[in-house]
Design a protein around this nucleic acid. Structure first.
Lengths: 225, 225
DNA sequence: TTTTGTGAACTAGTTCACAGCT
DNA sequence: AGCTGTGAACTAGTTCACAAAA
C-alpha cells in the first residue's frame, strides 16, 4: 500500500455498485482518448460513446470531487489519473486465481487484467498433476495447501474463484480466514461471506439463460447489456 | 396445468433484466431441491437460500402466471418445468462461441452450459493454425469464413464473443447479418447492436476494478454481489 | 458561449402488509 | 394455520433543467 491517498469522497456516503462499474468504464474510455492524444472531453461526448446520460457521468464523478472545468469539460490525463486512484489501481492490485481448470487458466492469462494494473501473482489447484506446472502465460500452479502462506507472502488483494461449485464455499472460507476482503466468483450458486468482505459473482449460466429468456419472449426492442 | 407452451405472460409488460436473471437463479435452486427429492417449497424458504426477499420471488413468478398454491407453496417439479419453458430451455438452446483463444476454449468446454440444456454447436476462429483442431471437450474449431453458413445450418440461437476487443464489433455485425438475435460478449468495450438484438456484456476488467474500488474505499459493510 | 455541478422531478425496483385461498 | 398474489409504500437510481463558473 501507498502512503495513503485518501480518496476525497465528499460526504461519507455509500457509493453504489453501478457507479463503481461505470467509473471503470469511464477509465477505459479515457485511456483510449489519451492514446488518441485528446486533451479534454465533455460529459456529453463521453456519454455518446456508450449509451449513457451526461448528467449521470457528471454525478458519478462529482461524488469524488470537482474534476471538471466549466465551459471546457474534463482534462483527459487529469481525470484518468483521478479515476485510477479512486479505483485503487495506482498501487498495482495483486490477484490470485484459484482453480487451474480451463477457466482458471484462461483467467490467469487474460491480457485485459495485466494491462490495467492487475498482477496475477498466484494460481492454485488441489490436483497433484497440475501443481508445479505453468499456465501458457507462465503463471506457476501452486498447491492449495500453500494457499494461506502464499496469500500472505504475496500480499494478495483479490481472489478469483474458478473452482467447481461444490468447492467454492470452502475456498471462500479459507480465503476470508487468510484476510482476503474481495473475491470474484465464477462458480455457480450462492456463497456466504461475512460482513466486510466483498463478493462479486459472474454467473455464466445465468447470463446465457437470461439471453435465452429474451429470445423466448421475443422481446423485440431490447438493446444493451 | 400446462398443455400450452405459450408462456402466459399476463399483460404484455416488459420484464426487467433483473427479473430474468433471478428466474435463472430460482431454477438452479429448484433443480437442487428436486434432486434432494423435496416436493414443495415456499417463497420464504427459497428466499432464505440466497439473500432475497420472499415477496420479490412471488412477484417475479406472478409475472408469468399463478404457479403457487396458497397455504402450501410451490410444487418443485411443477415450478421447475414452468421456469424451463419461461427461460426457453425446453427446446435445447444452440450456442456458438467465436474466438478459440484461452477464454473461448474454456467457454466451449464449460460444463455448466451443457448441463442446463445449452448445446455448444460451433467454435470459430480466424487463425489458420487453430482451424480443424478441437477443444479438449471435443468441439471442432471452424474457420470464421464458414460462420454464416454454419450459423444457419446449425440453427444457432446465441453467439458468445471471446475475441479481442478490436474484432468484436465486426463479429457482431456478421452475426446480426446472419440473423442472430442474442449475444453474450466477453470483449471489453462498448458494442453497437440494432434494435431487436439483445447483447449482454460480461466485462472481466470492470468486475475486478469495481472490487478494487471497494477495497480502496474500505467499504466495511458490503456483502453480496 | 459552453459545460459543469446539483437540487428537484421522475422512473424503476424492492419491500411491506394484508386480503383471500387452501 | 400457512402461504400466495398484489396494491400501496418505500427506496434507489436516473434524467431534467438551470444557476454558476470559465
Amino acid at each position: 500500500m501507498t502512503p495513503s491517498n485518501k480518496v476525497g469522497l465528499r460526504g461519507g456516503d455509500q457509493v453504489s455498485e453501478l457507479t463503481a462499474s461505470r467509473l471503470s468504464v469511464y477509465l477505459r474510455c479515457l485511456n483510449a482518448l489519451d492514446l488518441a492524444d485528446v486533451k479534454t472531453v465533455s460529459s456529453r461526448t463521453l456519454a455518446e460513446q456508450f449509451h449513457l446520460n451526461a448528467a449521470q457521468i457528471r454525478k458519478d464523478l462529482a461524488y469524488f470531487g470537482e474534476f471538471g472545468v466549466r465551459g471546457v469539460g474534463y482534462y483527459v490525463k487529469d481525470l484518468k489519473r483521478h479515476l485510477r486512484v479512486i479505483l485503487g489501481l495506482d498501487r498495482g492490485v495483486r490477484v490470485a486465481v484459484v482453480g487451474a481448470g480451463n477457466l482458471g487458466l484462461a483467467l490467469a492469462d487474460y491480457p485485459g487484467f495485466h494491462r490495467e494494473g492487475f498482477e496475477i501473482a498466484a494460481l492454485f489447484d488441489v490436483e497433484r498433476g497440475k501443481v508445479g506446472r505453468k499456465s501458457r502465460g507462465g503463471v506457476r500452479i501452486v498447491d492449495m495447501t500453500e494457499f494461506r502462506k502464499v496469500i500472505k507472502r504475496e500480499n494478495i488483494d483479490i481472489v478469483v474463484l474458478a473452482v467447481p461449485a461444490a468447492a467454492a464455499q470452502d475456498v471462500v472460507n479459507v480465503a476470508v480466514a487468510a484476510g482476503i476482503r474481495a473475491l470474484l466468483n465464477f462458480a455457480p450458486g450462492t456463497l456466504k461471506v461475512p460482513r466486510g468482505v466483498k463478493l462479486k459473482n459472474v454467473d455464466l449460466t445465468v447470463s446465457l439463460e437470461s439471453l435465452s429468456f429474451f429470445l423466448a419472449r421475443g422481446e423485440s426492442d431490447e438493446g444493451q447489456d
